[in-house]
Nucleic acid binder design. Sequence first.
RNA 1: GGGGGCGUAGCUCAGUUGGGAGAGCGUCGCGUUCGCAAUGCGAAGGUCGAGAGUUCGAGUCUCUUCGCCUCCA
Length: 977
Amino acid sequence: MAGTLPRLTSCARARTWFRSRLRLPYRVRDYDTGDRTGTMTSQEIRQQFIEFFREREHEIVPSSPVVPHDDPTLMFANAGMNQFKPYFLGTETAKRPRAADTQKCIRAGGKHNDLDDVGRDTYHHTFFEMLGNWSFGDYFKKEAIRWAWELLTEKWGIEKDRLHATYFEGDASEGLDPDTEARDLWLEILPPERVHPGNKKDNFWEMGDTGPCGPCSELHVDLTPDKSGASLVNGDDARVIELWNLVFIQFNRAADGRLSPLPAKHVDTGMGFERLCAILNGKKSNYDTDVFAPLFAAIQKRCSAPDYTGTLPSDSTDPSAPQVMVDVAYRVIADHVRCLTFALTDGAIPSNEGRGYVLRRILRRAVRYGRQYFGMQEPFLCDLVPAIIEQMGDSFPELTKRPDHVIELIRDEEASFGKTLTRGIQLFNDAADTAVKQHDGLISGADAFKLHDTYGFPIDLTQLMAEERDLHIDIGEYERLMEEARRQARSGTKLNPEFQHLQLKSGVAFPILETDDAPKHEGLTCAGSILGWLKDGEVISTPALGKDDTAGLILSQTSFYAEQGGQVGDVGTIKTESGVFAVESTIRVYDMLLHVGRVQSGLIKNDQPASCLVAPVRSHTMQNHTSTHVLNWALREVLGENVQQKGSLVDPEKTRFDFSHNKPVAADELRRIESLVNEQVTADHQVHTQEVDQKQALEINTLRAVFGEKYPDVVRVVSIGADIDEMLADPKNEKWMQYSVEFCGGTHLQKTAEAEDFVLIAEEAVAKGVRRLVGISGPAAKEARSKGESLLAECPSQEDVNLAERLSALQTELESAVIPITKRLEIRDLLGEVQKTIKAQSKQAATAAAGDVMTRAQELLDSAQFVGDTKIIVGEVPQANTDALRGAVDWFRQKTESSAVLLACHDGEKVTLLAGMSKDLIAKGTKAGDLIREIAPIVGGKGGGRPDMAQGGGSKPEAIGAAIEGATAWLVERIGG
RNA sequence: GGGGGCGUAGCUCAGUUGGGAGAGCGUCGCGUUCGCAAUGCGAAGGUCGAGAGUUCGAGUCUCUUCGCCUCCA
């Protein structure tokens, strides 16, 4: 599959090239009939947008990944401005004042989750492109408005009298005046009846609760036949739709809610690409454009589906008519597979949490539609990926890099959902049967909830399946269970209650007390002074903190490391002349370092000099952190360049490193990785750190940056063994490849030998395609080694006695022991062999014993007395066990017409009794269980069982004789009498 | 991070107050058949994920742990 791609994409490239030479004229004609044969391809539209702004001195930037690795507040890129956020926030300055691009966006998580709308109308998408142009403190409203107008009307020929503009009408409660500047600019172009004021909701844009914001101005297109849609602007009507949003960022909202003018004013615009393509080609639906046409063709071919006719549930008298649902399925599948292809290409993976979970839900929705309306039982979404790559690979070259990987991920996910679906359908059928028989066609809320909770069946699917069988669901009960589950999940995530008040109150102003934490790299102590503390959600400095008060203490200077980059926050103590504060963890909020903990003794007052004492365990953290870097390097050496860091955690006990690798790391690979790390430790390399310009640092060939992570312009480089200046002077020299170089702000050893030793103690999967290694260093590593050796020495050899007991003891110990993973694997193999021996031995013993038991059984049968027609077989069988006695009872049953049996054996103090009764006796009311209950107390125990076979036991072997006599007497009386 | 579910033969799964580990498919052997398909009879195949506990007795109950699935945050 991959082999054919380059050829296909180059075809597409040639086509674009050819078209661009032709300079075909485009004119938009009639929106009403839609009979215009579209002449502008989406490729061309995208290209012309880019060119238009390139000609106006905009830097054309590539789309940022749709999966942001550097912004934890954002699940997916959802607007063009995401990658420029630092410029608006003022944390970075733009290198060029103007930019334009097309940004890949996904909207599917979030609060207003409109996933269920996608496919049911003409314009909702989970994945879409956003065209945008930006000014960072450069041009403002005038140019933005004029260019938007020029591009739409002059270049693309949209009829001028179909365009409406909106501007911000002002808001008294915020003290904001109307945006007359924008209004007047529009009035120069448009007649007053097509320039509309808009309220704060529609025409004032904010990034978040705080930060840059400003009025916006939107261009709307009137698609009504007679251009009468003026009253429908901002009316949420499909006939008059928003096309281009121009945001003028000119205010900053502070934490107290007040707005202040920004010194630098910015422009941020966004125009939905798919919608634009539809409008320029006179199509009513985004799905009727060539953005989707090739994909629809691929779907039809792969699914042998009926033709796509473009009907919608909303304009049909029967919203669930077969053809309508077929058309919905086309749109759902096309949209979702686009979304998945882009998200997986950018490094996301379907999983059971976070954004991975959103993707899983999207995939499942598509699979369900495919199953239900196209009858697809096998994975099929994966087969649609090449069509997308062929179509979009030119504009988004990243798609062509690892298509196989994306296809495989989708196929696996589809296959595993297929299994869940089959299981769920079974459960549904059971639930439906119960509903029909017992509840008058009402499926219980509990069943619906279980389908959702355990099998991942969304409620709408369950409802659909119910409707097919003319059943209903107890929705009220379902909702109640759902809410309960939500509540439970929430209550589980609360912070340590002691520190809950340390959450900053939102919307309340607070001073930012900046902390200088440079000393963290110098040592474990430093002197600073108290600036204040965070308590009850507020940053304050009075009154003093008394004994046992909990707070987040803020110092002017500190040697504590705040949790960042995988390294945990430090613990320790802070002393002043009047008190001692125990620090339990350290976190960063903005530029404040919060020393979270409690006052141990005395008082802590503001402005006091304070000395920081970081707990000595930090040195173990440093050993582990430096080892982590070497490990990262060793992984590349052993497993190859494909190893990408996926996350890490470094604390005093261990280092936990997650990386992309799609199969378990083999035992010999583990050994090599471990010994490579130790070679570097023994070599006692100097650990170099230096602040370097990011671009320059990226030149270094061996540098390992986290894929997709966004770094500041000046980064701290940590090199193990190689001088950083030398590397910068000759960044491409092959010899650097033998050293570890990373961007890192963490605390490190000065020389690698200080790590002492390194041992891998675990290897496991965390997600599909992601493995996790856990390593330890220092004294803990040495201890693990010797523990491993001693456990290995304890392994029994085949000849040893009491194999079974020793094995069980060793397994228990092995489970909790911290030993090298390589040693663990070795021991596991060894014990596996031992296990086989044990099995063979016990089988042999069983067959031998069976022979003895049969001899004894024959004796008992021969000496048995008759009571009427029934044989009374009672006696002791030495050297037997429960299974052997059962075998004997079965044998007697075959040998005799009618029999009552009681056998006994003992192993040390433990007595086992077994009783059997033939059917005729049971019919007469003599049951094996009764016999056992009667006899077991004689040997000091009890028992029971079924009428034909019962079992009991006790602890008095010396009473077996008495028990047998008792049994004989009981049987003779019952049967004889 | 929290909740729920599952783990039994090579595969798909049953297993009801705790009381002899099962079915179907597959495998192997033997029949019917010239042979195949089909079919009849028979057999092999299990540390019931692992470890502890309760019990006279645990696939079943309790706890711990591993793996997978799933929902919520």
